[in-house]
Design a binder for these strands. Sequence first.
DNA 1: TCACTCATGTAATTGGTTACATGATTAG
DNA 2: CTAATCATGTAACCAATTACATGAGTGA
Lengths: 187, 187
Amino acid sequence: MAAGTVSFRYFILGLLAQKEMSGYDIKRFVESLGWLIGAPSFGSLYPALHTLLEDNLVEVTAHTCQDKPPRKTYRLTQPGKRALDEWINQPVNASAPLKDFVMRLILANNFAPHGLMAHLAQRREQVVAHQATLEQVLSASDEDADLRQHLALDYGLALAAAEVVWLDSALHRLSELSKELLPAEVV
Amino acid sequence: MAAGTVSFRYFILGLLAQKEMSGYDIKRFVESLGWLIGAPSFGSLYPALHTLLEDNLVEVTAHTCQDKPPRKTYRLTQPGKRALDEWINQPVNASAPLKDFVMRLILANNFAPHGLMAHLAQRREQVVAHQATLEQVLSASDEDADLRQHLALDYGLALAAAEVVWLDSALHRLSELSKELLPAEVV
DNA sequence: TCACTCATGTAATTGGTTACATGATTAG
DNA sequence: CTAATCATGTAACCAATTACATGAGTGA
């Protein structure tokens, strides 16, 4: 295992599966679409790349062309591809935080066909369960409590509801997509 | 500073401001409404309480009545109250994660009157900015890319939109509330 | 020449988890 | 009498941040 990261380790691997990138590229990319997951700092990103390299999951090319600052781009090796596949199609811990869900969502392309839908369906179950918990807490709380007391509950419920709506629509669209791709496969 | 936590440190302090609780109580409470922030483990919770105690921000009572397992309940001291006020009315870092926002939302009661609305307004700005970034990335990406490539973007946009709607409604309700409470204060 | 972005890295520290250890009380 | 829940704690470990250090290229 050596030193380094774990959560981001496979996420980075997944990003490199889509295209070859440098550490700096990864940072910029994650910053742009990662407001829900938070971009890793260089202090964790570079060491993570080094350990992936040590483990032979990625390989590197140094670009030292002049009139550009030198950079190193990383890409997956065959063992890296296998490690990623194994990781991504593995069921996630039921109480995984939002962050983990979104990280996998960003790697959507790397899922096996059924895997992605399973991931969304599992998330849906989780969110619905949380919704139920929040509603229960809300109904158990003081009737005369002021708005401020319920704010967080209300917020949680609003986000959960929005997420369920989105998940349903995404699941629907994905199933349409798979019907299109496998028209003869209908049971 | 000693060992212990930091993010959760003040959050715990805020919970104790609402009512006296034991470590176990805190865990249960946070688990029930904290799906967006994640409950701290006992391994961080108890040490955090110990350091709050050392710093004289909380005080403790041991309840060793028989036919109940012994427990310790914590409550704020005056210095604790001051530390909390100082912390909560302090502006948060602009790129703070969702978790930080929600933690403060749970502590809504502890805000100075204007502080809470400022907090929501600041969050709104942040979310709108993220929305703009995501839309930009979306429009810059391949037109022929399949649904899977846009899933995370789409998810982010859906959540952001829902959050803005909620924030607007909450801000509106809070301003109604403050009008009610200070009817003569209108400029 | 000064500041800014691009680009890579390391060391110290921190915030937090996991696993472990203990014990009382309650329900089957 | 055994399992589950209530209840508190410690030690080892880990992931990740912050701060630091370096250097090339670009534009004012």
